[in-house]
Simulated scan of single mutants.
Amino acid sequence: MDSARPRSLGPRSLVAVTACWGAFLLLDRLLSGRWWFWLIPDLAPPLLFLAVPVLLLALAVVTRPSRRWLVPVVVALLLAGLPRTGLNPAALLPGRDRAPGPAFSVFSWNTEYWDTTDDPDAFYRYLRSRDADVYLLQEYLAWVQETPTRIDRLDRIRQEFPGYRVAVLGELVTLSRFPVLATPTVGAALPAGTPWEVTFARKKVLRTDVDVHGRAVSLYNVHIPVQVDTRQSVFGGDFYRTVRAADAARREQYTALESDAAANHHPLLIAGDFNTTPAMGDLSGLRARFRDARSASGDLYPGSWGGLLGSDLWRLDWAFTDRRVAVERYSFADQRGMSDHRGQQLRVALRP
């Protein structure tokens, strides 16, 4: 009897691990985007939703015949987790979306503290090299003594981008070759004279309505607040209070954005740094109503941020359009060491 125990340990452990993974998938589906604490498990690289079931499947195939029933179970778990991996099956298909209407280019990028940590001349050369009709830029600020700090680069921006219209809200900057028709407030309006620090914290969506060859188009420049403060210890209460407060701030921005975009009668494009991965439920509202530009990408796994691991394992930067805007090309640009985010490059066209 004792000699049989080691032989059964492996298969039994495989069943236990498979059950744990199934429970995690269920909890993730139920809690992601609904419970503040789940922002912490949501930090995991989305490719885990592929790697874990593939490993379990390989082990299930080679296990003893009495445990082969695990194979269809693991396949089901693999299929259940695929939408959260961030994989882009459209990259394997020929052809791209096309529209006969006017087309224009967009570059969206989290600049990581604008030009304050880079050579300013190189920074602006890089931006100009994108040659976009529209720029949606985030983190127009400096980081001074662990605090976001206001900067003023408007004169330099206008010098570097002659002919562009400039819209600024807190840390968000939108540049447009097209005439600006309006900059409607998204969410609750702040009183006149509100300090920059308050605007920075409360206003993470800049809507700019522009005239594209006679048609009004709404551009949403977005930077959803980050969910954790990596300077805090996970063993302290401040870490979890920060996560809970961040969840409330993120929900405020998502609610305002989704409500405004749903009521908008113009063709629209939404892009920016969402600090949200493909595995997170926070994007469910936008994904249900609007089209992810990912389908126009040739990358099987489009990633835009790597963090401490140094590779783009996370996609935190997103672009969405409604049905009146076709995304003809979509890719992530090399940031040339000037940011921890890659920029989003799009060519879009308006449908008649």
Rank of each mutant, 00 (worst) to 15 (best):
A142V: 04
L47A: 14
P120K: 05
P65G: 03
P46N: 02
V144D: 12
L79N: 02
F104N: 03
L30Q: 13
D152I: 02
E139L: 07
R125H: 12
L93P: 01
D115H: 14
V61W: 07
P72L: 09
R29N: 03
G33N: 05
R130L: 08
T63Y: 02
L79E: 02
R130I: 03
L27D: 10
L92M: 12
L48G: 15
F24S: 09
R130K: 14
L50D: 04
I151N: 13
L57G: 15
L27P: 04
V71P: 05
R64A: 14
R64V: 15
L93E: 01
V74G: 10
A90I: 05
L87C: 07
P120A: 12
G95R: 11
A80N: 02
F123T: 15
W69I: 09
D97Q: 15
W109T: 12
W38P: 10
T147N: 05
W21N: 04
A90T: 09
F37S: 13
P89H: 09
D131Q: 09
A132W: 03
R84N: 06
V74R: 01
R153H: 10
Y113G: 00
L77W: 07
R84T: 05
V61G: 02
G86I: 09
L92P: 06
W69A: 12
A44K: 05
A103E: 10
F37Q: 07
E139R: 07
L43A: 13
D97T: 14
A122C: 06
A142K: 09
L59F: 10
T116F: 07
R98V: 12
R67Y: 14
V54K: 01
F104K: 03
A80E: 08
A51R: 00
T147V: 01
L82R: 11
D42I: 01
A90L: 04
L43T: 14
L136G: 04
W35P: 01
Q138G: 00
L93S: 03
S32F: 11
G81H: 00
E139A: 03
D152S: 06
Q145G: 11
L56I: 08
T147W: 00
V134C: 10
R29H: 08
L31W: 13
L47P: 10
V75S: 06
P53D: 04
R128W: 00
L31P: 00
P53I: 12
V62H: 08
V62K: 06
A60F: 01
F24P: 10
D152N: 13
L141F: 01
V52E: 04
D28M: 05
R150L: 00
R130V: 03
Y113T: 08
T63R: 02
Y140F: 14
T111L: 14
N110D: 10
V62G: 07
L77G: 12
R84I: 02
P100L: 01
L55G: 14
G86D: 11
S32A: 15
L57H: 00
L77S: 08
G95E: 11
P89M: 09
F123S: 15
T117I: 13
E139G: 05
R68G: 06
R153Y: 02
S66N: 11
R34G: 01
G81A: 04
D28Y: 10
R128T: 10
L30M: 15
V52N: 00
G95S: 06
R150W: 00
P148Y: 04
F123E: 09
P94Y: 12
G33V: 06
F123V: 09
L43C: 08
T63L: 00
W143P: 11
